[in-house]
Design a protein around this nucleic acid. Sequence first.
DNA 1: CGTTTTTCCGTAAACGTTTACGAGAACACA
DNA 2: TGTGTTCTCGTAAACGTTTACGGAAAAACG
Lengths: 341, 341
Amino acid sequence: MASSIHDLARHLNISIGTVSRALNGRADVNAETRQRVLEAARKLNYSPNQSGRSLRKGATHSIAFMLQPHPGDQQYGEPFFIPFLIGLQARLAEHDLDLMVVMGEPGQYQQERLRRVVETRRADAVVLANTRREDDRIDYLSKAGFPFATLGRSQSGGDTYPSLDIDFERAGDEAVDRLVARGHRRIAAIRPSLDLNFGYLFLDGYRKALKRHGLEVDPGLIADGFINETGGYQVTPRVMLSRDRPTAIIFNNDAMALGGCKALAEMGIRPGHDIAVIVIVDTPLCRYFSPALTAFRPSLEPMGRRLAEMLLASLPAFAGPEGTRIIREVWPLELVARESD
Amino acid sequence: MASSIHDLARHLNISIGTVSRALNGRADVNAETRQRVLEAARKLNYSPNQSGRSLRKGATHSIAFMLQPHPGDQQYGEPFFIPFLIGLQARLAEHDLDLMVVMGEPGQYQQERLRRVVETRRADAVVLANTRREDDRIDYLSKAGFPFATLGRSQSGGDTYPSLDIDFERAGDEAVDRLVARGHRRIAAIRPSLDLNFGYLFLDGYRKALKRHGLEVDPGLIADGFINETGGYQVTPRVMLSRDRPTAIIFNNDAMALGGCKALAEMGIRPGHDIAVIVIVDTPLCRYFSPALTAFRPSLEPMGRRLAEMLLASLPAFAGPEGTRIIREVWPLELVARESD
DNA sequence: CGTTTTTCCGTAAACGTTTACGAGAACACA
DNA sequence: TGTGTTCTCGTAAACGTTTACGGAAAAACG
């Protein structure tokens, strides 16, 4: 059932070299011969053995996406990544590249899985997500000279790799702007406690906007929690119990917002009535929650496509005539005004 | 930087054959020699080239999980799979098997991606999810003689492959039981409209329980919708507008439940007060929704581990001395009683 | 001491590709 | 006719492993 290039050669009574050249569209093969090869390939249901090809070419024709679940009580996934991956894989497929998603274990340090991919050469490049402010995966890959791109910025590694990020800073800024315009003065910010870079970026924008409006930055209104529903649930009461209650909360994550709203509900505080709520990254949850949550929406699928292009442009094997380029982009979010603010 | 087995051999002044044998723990190599090889491997930072190994052994040492996003307006993922994948990958890792997640595009038929994996021999086996009642992926893999296992049952392919499923039938049954015990007589069921097998199983249990309680099965109380929030939102009003309103709804999917609750809210109907709601597959959303949704919870991570074991037991290369076994299991769900019913 | 067994290791082929090299045939040109 | 060019293809090496085979040396045994 597994027909090889040798089978084709034997069947057509020509050499394997010619078969290979015909299949790969090289110029030095007779048009008629190529036709016969292609036809035989179809008839014998030939498809190239990836291992053989990889071995010879030193390339695997696949890109690894490192999906690291956050440690936590319940290990549910971030819906965020799926549309991104769809875009990523779609663009990669156009270049005959496979996308493989490599999972780590929640507690376990992702470094080990990454090493494995790199050292056994399972992929030609990797895509990192959940970038930390200081990210040793980036340090490792840079030092190893292994090609990679990141979804999200980091302070590690300089400007030596392609990266695509959402403009969390601006989103934090705009969220404050909007709330201030609606009369709010005490605005809380709730973000993940890990070293995740976007949490810092969001807070930068939040602070900047407050200052611009001449409002003080009250540390009692800023809280870090675990990046899931439980985290939001646990940490939201903390800001609500500060001496001077906030009248608005900006959540940096949809899961945290859900947990936070639960905590609010238990305190008898109704989002959209008693308090304004804005979420930075929109998901279907925000849309279908009651009240529907005002949120900032990214274009995930186009971002996936774009990061694929950026990664490819940085790979010598795929870079066009203009050579290898490192591109870094930061994309805006779109505000979706709903009922919660 | 990429040190091969040849480098080790040269460095130690022995043959590559011996190096390979030492590395693979074969018996016919001197203990001291093995020590030296292992040491050199560590020093030269050797790790085997996967392509070379795969080519020689005819095995890739990786298992593919096919993740097919449902077509829909917004392509968000099912959080369901992440904990399952964590368990799956954990057990596979113990056998030095990598897990790769292969994405398809939403609209596109997954068959094509699957073919690619199989024909180019990118994985040694595949794991299928979202099994349809009649599933041509299963037919294809069976016919191709390619090893696979499924998360979820199907009517295709007979009992020739390992499969692990949740007992949706019993969950549907128990949900009705519980609602009837609480005085409900008109109970609606909302499930996905695709050919997804669990939708049928759920409905079987639902019908069976109704009949046992001497209640008629009213087609007006059963609705199929798209398997996401929008689907639930669109289809829930339909059962609410039937001549004789239901007093309870069982949702076969958490996303549909969210959409459905939104529709209820817009009709001024409060889950937990005006209507009872039960969800078949629990997620953090159910727990943190207001009111918290009563739901049936699966043990996803253990299920992932188990399916890995079942798949391995069916692979000649990994089956123990007892030989190759096909195992099929159906696991119960645990009822988590909360506020919505 | 001779014979047999065991221990250890080197040799070389094989997995399925791609590709550098060279050669034969056909063709063009003077 | 001789020389150079172009077209087409076969040969063989190479990628990094694993492993069947055989042989040399050491050990065991009579």
